[in-house]
Each structure stands twice: as C-alpha cells, then as structure tokens.
Design a protein around this nucleic acid. Sequence first.
DNA 1: CGTACTCGGGAGAGCGCTCTCCGACGTGGT
DNA 2: ACCACGTCGGAGAGCGCTCTCCCGAGTACG
Lengths: 328, 328
Amino acid sequence: MSRATVSRVVNGTRNVDPEIQRIVQEAVAATGYVPNRAARSLVTRRTDSVALIFSVPDHQAADDPFLGQVFSDPFFGRIVGGLLTVLRPRGVHPVLMLADSDDARHSLVSTLRQEHADGVVLVSIAPGDPLPFMLTEAGLPTVLFGRPPTPTPVSYVDISQQAGARLAADHLVARGCRRIVTIAGPYDSAAGQERLTGFRQAMAEHGVAYVPSVEGGFTQKGGEGAMRALLAEQPDLDGVFVANDLMAQGALLVLRDFGRRVPQDVAVVGFDDSSAALAARPLLTTVRQPVEDMAAEMARLLLALIDDPEHRTRSVIFKTTLVARESA
Amino acid sequence: MSRATVSRVVNGTRNVDPEIQRIVQEAVAATGYVPNRAARSLVTRRTDSVALIFSVPDHQAADDPFLGQVFSDPFFGRIVGGLLTVLRPRGVHPVLMLADSDDARHSLVSTLRQEHADGVVLVSIAPGDPLPFMLTEAGLPTVLFGRPPTPTPVSYVDISQQAGARLAADHLVARGCRRIVTIAGPYDSAAGQERLTGFRQAMAEHGVAYVPSVEGGFTQKGGEGAMRALLAEQPDLDGVFVANDLMAQGALLVLRDFGRRVPQDVAVVGFDDSSAALAARPLLTTVRQPVEDMAAEMARLLLALIDDPEHRTRSVIFKTTLVARESA
DNA sequence: CGTACTCGGGAGAGCGCTCTCCGACGTGGT
DNA sequence: ACCACGTCGGAGAGCGCTCTCCCGAGTACG
C-alpha cells in the first residue's frame, strides 16, 4: 500500500477501489493514524484557519484590563457566533488577534505573511485604521466589518447607517415626539457620523430643522453624561435617538433619576439591538443590526476570496430593522 | 550563503559572525522574505498556537443564535484578555473552538491530534463534560478553567467557591440582614452547587439554620423568575445572595418592580464582578473572581506544560474578594 | 483478435524549513 | 613548527504529506 493511495482515501480525491478504501480506513482506525497538518499545509498552501482581527485605538500596554474590555464588547460574541456558523461546517478555525498598537499591527501582518492563516476577517473600531490598507497591500484575502476608513479595494459588509437612523426618526415622529434630541457616537467614527447626519436629514424631511446632539463615545458612562447635558440644554425634550444601545442604557438611568417616565414623557430609541437592549428597563426600542448575519456573510465572502484570489471585491449592505419594545 | 546560515540568523541559534548577520538581515529586508510557518512547524513540531475551547451543554444545531450567546458571556472576553497578556509576548496565538455537541467534541479532539495546536485551554460549563478526559487521554497539554467534573490528572485554575460564598454571607450578616435567601446556579454545575452549600454553611455558622433558595440557571431571565418565587415564599426577606451577576441583575429589576428599595429594604450581593455588576442599578456589590489573572495563569501553566511534557499537573486556587458597591 | 481508451495504484519528487554532522579556518600551547 | 582545540559556515538529510506522472489491467469496439 503506497502513501499516495492512503492520501487519496483520506482526502477522497479520485476514485479508489471500495475494497481498498475499506482496508485503508480500517488500518487508519486500528493504528490511530492522524495526518499531520503542518505537512499538509506545506504542500497545499492552506492552513484551514482564518485570522479574526480586532483593531482598536492604541492604548497603553500597562493598561492591561483594557484587553478584556475589548473582548467584552457584546459585538464580539455575536460576530464570533456568526462566523462560526459558516466556518465550522467547512472545518476552518478562527485565530484570534488583537491590533492595539502600531507595533501589534506590524507584527500581525508579518505573522500573517508567513501563511499563518488563509485570510483575514477584520473588525476595526480604530479611526483611520491603516490595517485594511496594510492587509490588502500584503496580498492577504481580507473582509472588513464596516466600510474601510479610506477607499480601499477590499470586500466588506456593512449596514446602511443612514437608513437605520431614518428608521429611528420615523418612529419617534410617528409617536408624536416633537422636541427630539440625539446622543451621537464619536465624530471620528464613520458609524457615529453617519447615524447623526442620517438622523438629522430624516428629521429635516419631517420638518424639524435642528436636532441638538451631544457626543457620548459609544459607552454607557458617556451616554449618561450626554443625557444630562441634553436635559440641561432642552429640559422639555420628549424623544431621544441614541446612536448605540450601551449609551441608551446610560441615558435611561439618567432619565429615571430626573423623574422622566419612559416612554410616557420621553421616548428613547437605541441602535444595534445588542444584549444591552434587553438588559435595560424599560426594554429598549432599537434599530437592529443583523450582526450574526453580517458575520456569516463575511465568512462566506472570505472563503470565496480564498478559493479564488481573482474573485473581485464585493460589498454587501444589510438592512436594519426597528425592534419596537417598551422605550418608544 | 547557505539556507542553514540564514536559518541560524533568523532564529538566533548559535553564534553567527556579526558581519554575516548584517548581510543576511539586509537581504531578508530587501527581498521581503518571510519564513514559512508550515515548513517550520513540520520540523519543530510546534505550531505556536493554542486552542481555546469553550465547552457548553449540547443544543440543537438549528438553534444558531445560541452560538452568539455563548461568546457574549462576559466571561469570555475577560478570559481572552487574560490569556492574551501572556500569550502575545510569547508570539502564541489562540485558536477559537466551540464544543457544543458530542460530534463537535470528537472532531475537535481529532483536529487537535493533527498537531493543530500545541496545547489546550478549556473552559467548560457543560455538566459532566467528557472533554477534559478526552484531551488528557489524547496526550494533549491541557489546562482547565475550574476543577474537572471527574477527578482527572490535569492542571487547572479555580477559585474557592465556598470561601467566596462565605464572603457574601459575612457581608449580609454584618449589614444586619436576618431574613436571607439565595438564588442559586444550576445544581448540576460545580460552581452552582458549591456556592450554595458554602453559603448555607456560612449562614449556619451565623446561626441561620435554613436559607430558602431557588435555582436561576445563571441567566438574567432565570434570576428574575427566581426572585419572584422567593418574594412569594418569603415576602419579608431583607437580603439576597445571588450566585452570579447576571441573575443578580434580573433580581434587582424584579425587586424594583415590587417596590423594594435596594439596599435599604433588601441587600443584594452578586458573584463574579462581571460587566453586569457595573451595568446594574444600583451598582452591584459582588464577590469578585479574578478572571483575568486566572486566565493569565492558565496560559503560564499551559506554556510550561508545552515546554516540558513531563511537567507535573498543578492546580492554582485564586482568592475571591468582596467588592462593596451600592446594592449591599 | 488487436488496438485504443479508461480506470486505478505506485513511484518519487518536492513543499521550505531545521538540525546534525563535517570540515575549514584561526588561535594558543608545547 | 606542529598539533589540539574551539569557532562558525556549508552540505544534506529528513520532517509527513500531496500530486504529477507512469504503467498495468480491464473494457469496448472495429
């Protein structure tokens, strides 16, 4: 029995006599033989793993607790879950990497050039992240979560931020809210910016010329501060659009402290439909981002790109939906 | 210039003439050469990656959203963060794997036997999980988060659950609580069981013979239901020990719905000190589990085990601390 | 019955590295 | 001046697999 035949049986390439197949399989089972992945990779040039990179703003290395926070983001789990639905059936494993400094980004790219992974799924929340460019430059099959900060020939999935914000505007107006304010995301993030402009534009079409806004940094604490500032600026407000659920959770707490009933006095609409929306009281009405579906699509795009490097880059834009719960 | 010399320069083994080192490095830089990982793995028998396995109770594959929930557990992020503090400086990457069925467990073990990873970090929340046994059986260097369900010669990190529960009991009693109840974790989980018995034992030592308890399944929803049940059973309760923060978050909501002020009317102590503790209002007083430190220690134990397979198995038990916030 | 073609197994090269040997050269001691 | 020894580069095997040939046997057709 030659190694070639065994290889053919194990990999199911070409036809092999059923009898011989049986013999080989029995021998494999009996000896507990397992093929060596490194040797296979060496010749197939495939590792059957993809890198899952989270790229975040730089921070001091000493500030280690931050590491945990990155991965505690509810997004992270949903993305991993979505990826796995597609990757697992294909026998592909995700390798976790964190890009939190320029050093990290460089060492990461050189690691990947060693054929550590067949491709890259990149989730970047760092403004002006150079990583999308670095990765495509290095010729690595790459798919992004969210449009790249600078136009780059790279595949990505995203949602229409503006359409999502419009959903929130329509809902608040339909409820009869008139004195509407918004808690925005960071101005240097595409998502923060577009949700704000989309919301304002939709409100303008509803005849509301100006919508006060305060930036809340996408954190619960930030949302609390922003809500307080807005209550000071416009005490008679009756509707708030908050650019993510975490900030909305903070806003709800502040509204309660100020004795405003939600939704009777003030209606609140969040964005994302993350676990925070269900942890909040009242339950948060929010614009749902189909993160799991988006992640699954990323995996599909990436696998296609890996199978055919000539595959042209594509972007897939997902629809958001309004999930009406209690807060609006 | 021979390949051997280049290899020596790149890996820094043996002495190489500084002049030649310089030449090689320049050539490497100029040609953009990067060594091939698979080829190196083939001969060194090292992959420089470790598997990070989350093993959870079986569930229907169709029930895909569950996948996301697994990784949304606040634990997950903290563990990843802790591991990375140790693994990154060593150039080791974690490969994410999910064991959510017997099939998954088997395919996972056979994948690992192909030398896909140098070792395994296993976080199991599946009762009676066979994976610890399967992994050690396969001769894979393994470190567990939490004591193995059946005695197995394997390294692990854990906390003293009983000592943690005692911390909560002491705190509630010191506050003057007398009619104390507890929301327990699943009875088939070691953590759930030990926190309950530890708490009851400590209370007994404080002269309280019986502590009503209801099981809350470690979820927020379960915590809400359990709290309602306990309020019905003992309407005059003035203290609650909840076996994790997620359930405590649910309990707080129910207490508020029932018009009980926390901590004035009812004191609440959680367990874990997860992000949920800070998201809750009032801020949750809780028993802190140093998850990041534990994860870092897992990484250290695993790397030691990989470097020296004869290394004897070790367990490291961490201390819990009470973090006093607002709820008790 | 002979030829052309198909089908399936074997031989062997080669993937890109590391590492053990070996040998060349330089140095110091006798 | 010669030899022993230490230092460092080169040659080449070999890690375990896949895959391209090649060839023998079986089959169909003229």
